[in-house]
């Protein structure tokens, strides 16, 4: 079976078993190893990618369901020498990263969450992280960083808004 979808902005045609999990195609065929296959059961979130803009686990996504979809991986979020996503830059500045294996998935989940929930509070951020496990950091610095990022974003938007007036 042939499945056609867009991967990080380019057309891709897959010809093999449609039940192949997306994460295997990313890692084994494209060497896009930023997407990590940690639990393969949808609990850890390390394999999170965007499918049509939604953050979903790629371990449980059979490629057959992706026909016509737009898939973005961590490598596609800020490629080449492009600037980091503001959340990535904030994690770097805050010294939030330890072993780093969970962070690509964390960034993919939380970047979509911040886009959709710019007014989120701390508890809502934590709820959004239920499917992203981190074994090193104890989470709070990650949460702090998202809180700070959303605050900065709100201030920027408010400033821009008042200038428009």
């Amino acid at each position: 079976m042939t499945v056609t979808f867009r991967l990080n902005g380019e057309d891709y045609r897959f010809r093999d078993d449609p039940m192949t999990p997306l994460v295997d195609i990313l890692r084994q065929e494209h060497f896009l190893t930023g997407t990590k296959a940690v639990c393969r059961e949808g609990f850890c979130g390390a394999c999170t990618v965007h499918v049509d803009g939604e953050a979903v686990p790629s371990c449980l996504k059979p490629v057959g369901l992706l026909h016509g979809c737009e898939v973005t991986t961590i490598e596609g979020l800020s490629s080449g020498q492009e600037a980091l996503h503001p959340l990535q830059a904030a994690f770097e500045a805050a010294d939030a990263v330890q072993c780093g294996m969970c962070f690509p998935g964390m960034v993919m989940s939380l970047s979509a969450f911040m886009r959709d929930n710019p007014g989120a509070c701390r508890a809502e951020i934590k709820s959004a992280m239920v499917g992203n496990i981190c074994r090193c950091t104890g989470y709070e610095r990650i949460v702090d960083t998202v809180v700070d990022c959303l605050d900065t974003h709100r201030q920027t938007t408010e400033t821009a808004g008042s200038m428009n007036v």
């Binding site: 609990f43 686990p57 959004a128 239920v130 499917g131």
Partner: peptide, 9 residues
Amino acid sequence: AANPGIRRV
């Protein structure tokens, strides 16, 4: 149910 990523799927 489950977690946000699973609920989207």
